[in-house]
């Protein structure tokens, strides 16, 4: 039974050819397909995160919706205001309107036929004034019939990193979907799958699949990961994906051992300083006592 279910999911996902990141599938991409394919070695995908301090903030932000024929797209603000999005003429580029709000916004795309419902979801981080809303509000708000919800969405000043474990919840019509296969694929070529538990939860450790890692976060461009799942209900096949950037884990150039060593040297230095200080103080007290006795 288990094998059957997994085979079914893989069959559907296979039908839509997910062997390639940018295959014909409703999917939000931070770069046009050709650039995304040449990827990842040269792309700056994932720079929509808070990390984009060095970006030109006045520059417009755009995403590309792959295979966007007959689809609808919308943009949701942290306050849950829905803004319909339209692609640039003869293209799949969607320029995100400026909301003036800081924090995560949601990019949602859907395509419906009689027998299928496809969707894609992404949370770009936008700069602006404090929104006054918790990102939890946006992330936990139901946006799609079948939805992969990050639990929680990574926080400001943080990123998805390779080797880090993250939890997700699969919801169908706002209810947890148990025993459902979820497939993770990265633009670096890794693929893995896992099944949701009784609460619809699943976790993945992002693969350590970056090549030619250089020391320093800025020296390594982020890659993309995509989570996909499929569910069939009342004769309709629901397919959804959630995509986000992930970065090289800083443990490649950060040494805990070095930190402990340096801390220990500091600690011992403090003891030496205080020992000398206390000896000096004790000596002074002794001298004062002696001089008082003498006088």
């Amino acid at each position: 039974m288990r094998i059957k279910a997994k085979t079914a999911v893989l069959f559907f996902l296979g039908t839509f050819g997910i062997n390639h990141l940018t295959y014909a599938e409703l999917l939000w991409n931070p770069k046009p397909v050709k650039e995304a394919e040449s990827k990842i070695k040269s792309s700056n995908t994932g720079h929509e995160g808070h990390a984009g301090h060095q970006q030109n903030r006045s520059k417009e932000k755009a995403f590309y919706l792959e295979d966007n024929q007959n689809s609808t797209a919308r943009y949701i603000t942290p306050g849950l205001e829905v803004i319909p999005l339209t692609a640039e003429e003869k293209g799949n580029k969607y320029i995100l309107p400026k909301t003036g709000m800081d924090n995560y916004h949601a990019l949602v795309a859907e395509r419906k036929t009689e027998s299928t419902h496809e969707s894609a979801l992404r949370y770009p981080y936008m700069r602006g004034k404090p929104s006054g809303h918790s990102p939890d509000k946006l992330v936990s708000d139901s946006k799609l019939p079948l939805e992969i919800v990050p639990e929680p969405m990574i926080r400001e000043h943080w990123r998805f990193y390779s080797s880090n474990k993250h939890d997700y919840k699969v919801l169908f019509e706002e209810k947890p979907l148990k025993d459902t296969w979820v497939i993770l694929q990265t633009s670096n070529g890794s693929k893995m799958d896992a099944k949701t538990d009784g609460d619809g939860k699943v976790n993945f450790t992002l693969p350590e699949d970056f090549q030619d890692i250089k020391p320093g976060r800025r020296a390594n461009k982020p890659a993309e990961f995509i989570l996909r799942t499929v569910h069939i209900s009342d004769g309709i096949t629901y397919k959804t994906n959630f995509s986000a950037p992930y970065s090289v884990n800083p443990s490649h150039w950060n040494s805990n051992l070095g930190g402990i060593l340096s801390l220990s040297v500091g600690f011992l230095s403090g003891i030496v300083i205080m020992r000398r200080h206390n000896n000096k103080m004790n000596e002074e007290k002794k001298n004062n006592k002696n001089s008082r006795r003498a006088s």
Binding site: L263, S264, G266, S269, I273, M274
Partner: peptide, 18 residues
């Protein structure tokens, strides 16, 4: 980072007495 960890260690030991 060396300065930070060193300072943290220094603060810990001095903090035990001052």
């Amino acid at each position: 980072s060396v300065l930070a960890t060193f300072l943290f260690g220094l603060m810990m030991s001095i903090g035990l007495m001052v």
